[in-house]
Design a protein around this nucleic acid. Structure first.
Lengths: 107, 107
DNA sequence: TATATATGCAATCAATCGGTTTCGCAATTC
DNA sequence: GAATTGCGAAACCGATTGATTGCATATATA
């Protein structure tokens, strides 16, 4: 059982579930209505998402509402940061080149 | 063969490879030296990364240098954006609350 | 109380994954 | 030219994955 957030997000159905419940909590049945799979399959996805704390549940009678623990997604964002730094560096380098070109033009 | 970027990034060894070659191109052997696996296993990872265009190769004699196609990682960043928006909204809402608290205090 | 609904869990299955071992090929080096 | 080095591809293997089916349980409704 690996259960890390990157593995959780790797599956396209799970990504869709995440997007679906990002703004409002939903029951497994309601979620399953949006996909071409059984409710049980969705339930398994929700279990995986719960195990890596990407999702939290709230029981209301016989229904269980699932909602996104959006802060957990910051772990992905955190990983991306190192590459964002590289992008920025390259962007600045490109900027330098453009500035130099402009200066040459004005000479 | 699914080969999408999220699945590619799901494996911890592949994430480590990505980080390793982000700044400088490396050969499979050099990459493999950093891990507890065989060169062939690394080679398979590199093939997967190549297939989803996260990595490019440059042959120099009998060596092949692999480097990161860093722009491809923006696809992950793009997916994150929807959640970043939600974070910002929540942050602003929190900000509103704090402003109101402050105003009440001053009354 | 009997029935319907909402859900989780276990068993099962084919497909995929990540790894190793073995091999073949091309480019160096001796 | 022979040996060495760097590499990818294929065959294989146990573990994991995503899905289905069948079942058990709890709540709501008739």
């Amino acid at each position: 059982m690996r259960r890390d957030i990157f593995q959780a997000v790797a599956d396209p159905t799970r990504r869709a579930i995440i997007a679906l419940i990002a703004l409002q909590a939903m029951t497994p049945n309601a979620i399953a209505d949006n996909f071409n799979t059984t409710r049980q399959a969705v339930s398994k996805h929700l279990r995986i998402l719960t195990e890596c704390e990407l999702v939290k549940q709230e029981q209301k009678g016989r229904e269980i509402y699932y909602s996104l623990e959006i802060d957990k997604l910051k772990e992905v964002d955190k990983w991306m940061e190192q590459f964002r730094k590289i992008w920025e560096t390259r962007y600045n380098q490109l900027d330098d080149v453009l500035v130099k070109l402009k200066n040459n033009k004005n000479e």
